[in-house]
Design a protein around this nucleic acid. Sequence first.
DNA 1: TACAACTCGATTGTGCACAATTGAATTGGC
DNA 2: GCCAATTCAATTGTGCACAATCGAGTTGTA
Lengths: 146, 146
Amino acid sequence: MDTLRLDDQACFAVHAASRALDAVYRRELAALGLTYPQYLVMLVLWERGQVSVKDLGVALRLDSGTLSPLLKRLEAAGLVRRERDPGDERSVLVRLTPEGTLLRARAEPLPRRIMEASGMGPDELADLHRTLSRLTRSLTESAARA
Amino acid sequence: MDTLRLDDQACFAVHAASRALDAVYRRELAALGLTYPQYLVMLVLWERGQVSVKDLGVALRLDSGTLSPLLKRLEAAGLVRRERDPGDERSVLVRLTPEGTLLRARAEPLPRRIMEASGMGPDELADLHRTLSRLTRSLTESAARA
DNA sequence: TACAACTCGATTGTGCACAATTGAATTGGC
DNA sequence: GCCAATTCAATTGTGCACAATCGAGTTGTA
């Protein structure tokens, strides 16, 4: 096996799968007016109700250069509000608006639809999830060492 | 399991793995002056020597909106040349320059280094590769149907 | 041969991602 | 209490990704 052959590289498979997933989400999320990264932010907010930009970055592994403009777009869409934490003026808290809270109901059917598009069963997806989590951890640790 | 819980979604695992991989490649490719997508283009060229923008798009599943500026940067870096196909003026052929050809030697050690960073063995990676290829195919077919 | 349909690359506009920098606010050491 | 170090969000700049559109060039067909 030629190690520089594109088709032999698992890395490209990860990259390609990620983009294919983006495309499916793009279609499914169009009706909600969300992009996939915006949807990820909403997932965190639906779980926790309120979260600082900092914690959002930790949860999604995104920095403020990505989150700041993204959150402004969500605020412009009327789904979230942003305000300084009175207890620590350095921190900005992101909260759901009533509209943002209501949107959750329309997002409920999404995971099932994505699962169907994946053509994989729950066990297989759970397995993939475990493998990829381990891969991500290794890669992140490797990057941190360098 | 709450289907809208971030940590439970295999999709997010794919997304996260893809970005972690990008980060490792960014570090490894810095010395070559390439980004990961640029490296992918070079892989195809090292395999085939010459390829049309169209075929490049098919191989990498990228459209001209992504490839055109990317190829211009590679050309500005002196790694490729672009010229119209004399046989079909609609087509643009991308070729390696001597510098581009030479760069291959410096890219040879990369796959091994990435594999080490992944913390996974060849068998496991091959397995992941198969699973992700199947996932990508399902997702792409699903997107095409809609 | 004329002309409609198609192919192909380029461009434009929007959004994500990250590095580097900035500036405000807080915290810890003294 | 004061000042240096740290934390945090925002901004800027570069590059990737895709949708939509355009125009040049080619091909199929009447």
